[in-house]
Nucleic acid binder design. Structure first.
Lengths: 341, 341
DNA sequence: AAACCTTAAGTAAACGTTTTCAACTAGGTG
DNA sequence: CACCTAGTTGAAAACGTTTACTTAAGGTTT
């Protein structure tokens, strides 16, 4: 047990009171040049570091955010988290990572912990559209800065930063239609996820606008994961009345579709066009490169933190909804349909 | 500004002193059943939650770990971090995420922050073999639990959990030799990384043991990243005296090699065998599936946390070095050499 | 020269807990 | 009946800061 050096030790060494030390440390109030010097010298010599939990105690600020995501193993959240952590660090905040697996009970546990630890704000990036925990926190701590990233939550008015999922779904589908595809499948994530729903809406809108029928067999929802893409893809592609193109709800699902196609000996893009969503690392890795709708992940993460910081520092909360535009990234997984039929 | 409810409010409501409340809350010392009941009732009614920063102040425990990694975007660290966070959560700890990009200055900043926040322990998973920051922390805070994950650090005696990199390198190389390859390349990560060095040693040892010459042109080090594998792979494969198999220092490098091979119109595994390291998500995604050396990432992460918790709770520090065995995972990227030459 | 700023520095309270110490009860012991 | 002890509670100190309040010196204004 080393004796940690406190402000008291500095005060003693510099022959001043602790309040004086505090003042020069924070340079607040009046302090003479000579005293400043003495104190700084003592600080240096003792290698004094301010204890932040004491500061937190009195100021009620911990310079810490809670970040709530489903799973950091998921590459999408890896990219998001990195952007968030970087921006937070720039502003002098640390982030506590919480993986909930979309489990509301687990989320609740984490929230309890975070609140008791006095975090300065929470960033939610959970797909769940109906998150009662968030509402509860809002009720018990209406002052606490919270921002929702990548999703909307029902009956909740909070700052939120989003990608335009409807537009992305529309663009993806339009791209396939432009290539001549008429039978297009959609494999989406959780059905109670905002992204799934909006992308599906965009999908349907594009079909309708172009006068193409919607085949319910060709719409399947599961999870935003590789195995979902694989399983649903196999189901969808095994039948003879199969689509010639698949719009995958995200890149991971697209990867699963690749695997399914490979097993069924279908060539991408010759026999099947595939388009993903997010433009995650997966999109570049697979062969052929995945055409996808780019979500500006890093920009969104950064913006989220900036909002949170702004709420904290300026104490203004506009409850904004900021929508980022997605963009089509064309690689090699989509192609003109061969009218062999 | 909501008035947060404190132990004082509970005490008032239950008509007892705050010390009594504290005692029933922590059930320490003597408390009568009747008082216990009164207090618990008040706690429930007021929805009292103990403020952990006050507790931290006095107990000098924050139930928080710092986790230092290069980059959470890197899929390897994603998997590691998830395992760590899960295990930490099980033990009632939160983790503060720190991305250093292997930048020692950045690492130092983070360390300062963590120390001032009174974290209970630090988990380092940095490849850097010569990390002066760690030594400095050990000097200034010899009591602070620290565990190193996945690497050794020079002149530092700390708990460490490792995969047997030498063995992995040896096994990978042996596998290729067994398949008849005689010209084998090695593309590794940072040259001052423990993993790089040890895997290379294993590589060399296997070659030597089997009487194969080491061609220096076929050993290239860069970073544990896709683009490194791509660039070094292209350099190595462009020459006519090219290897028939490549041992990639990790899966990301292997992915880069895939890309290089594709551009050079070499088929894997027909024209080139590739073996990776880690068995990350990438290994299953690529086509053909990547043969690789499995690092038990999750197990290692969990063990690391368990060590840290043990040091904290039992206050015993054995400075153990725990070595996990890697295993060969055969997929489709390695094959017998065709003796076409 | 009295009254009043301005600058400077110290005293002490406060933040919300835990914990030591003291005090008081009731029952048991000699 | 005096004394001890185990059980139960409260008062107050402590953790390491920040900050409101106080005091004091010196200069400026009247």
């Amino acid at each position: 047990m080393e004796k940690t050096v406190t402000i008291k030790d500095v005060a003693r060494k510099a022959n001043v009171s602790i309040s004086t030390v505090s003042r020069v440390l924070n340079n607040s109030g009046y302090t003479s040049a000579s005293v400043k010097e003495k104190v700084n010298k003592a600080v240096d010599e003792l290698k004094f570091q301010k204890n932040m939990v004491a500061t937190a105690m009195i100021k009620k600020q911990t310079s810490t955010f809670g970040l709530i995501i489903p799973d950091i193993k998921n590459i999408f959240y890896g990219e998001l988290t990195r952007a968030i952590e970087d921006k937070a660090h720039q502003h002098g905040f640390n982030v506590i990572l919480c993986n909930t697996d979309n489990n509301l009970e687990k989320e609740k546990e984490y929230l309890n912990f975070l609140l008791r630890k006095g975090i300065d704000g929470i960033i939610f990036s959970t797909p769940e559209i109906n998150d009662r925990n968030i509402r509860e926190v809002m009720k018990s701590r209406p002052d606490l800065p919270m921002v929702i990233l990548g999703s909307k939550v029902q009956n909740v008015r909070l700052d939120e930063v989003l990608v335009d999922n409807f537009d992305g779904g529309y663009t993806a589908t339009e791209h396939l239609i432009d290539l001549g595809h008429e039978k297009i499948g959609y494999i989406g994530g959780q059905q109670d996820s905002y992204a799934t729903v909006e992308r599906l809406k965009g999908f349907k809108a594009a079909l309708e606008e172009r006068g193409l029928p919607l085949d319910k067999k060709h719409v399947k929802l599961d999870e935003f994961k590789i195995h979902s893409g694989y399983e649903k893809g196999k189901e969808m592609l095994a039948k003879k009345d199969r689509p010639t193109a698949i719009f995958a709800g995200n890149d991971a699902i697209a990867v699963g579709v690749y695997k399914a196609a490979r097993e069924l000996e279908m060539k991408i893009p010759e026999d099947l066009s595939v388009i993903g969503f997010d433009d995650s690392q997966f999109a570049e890795i697979v062969d052929p490169g995945l055409t996808t709708i780019r979500t500006p992940i890093a920009e969104m993460g950064e913006k989220t933190v900036e909002l949170a910081v702004q709420i904290i520092k300026e104490n203004k909360n506009f409850k904004e909804s900021i929508m980022f535009p997605p963009t089509l990234i064309e690689r090699a997984s989509t192609a003109s349909i061969k009218k062999v039929h």
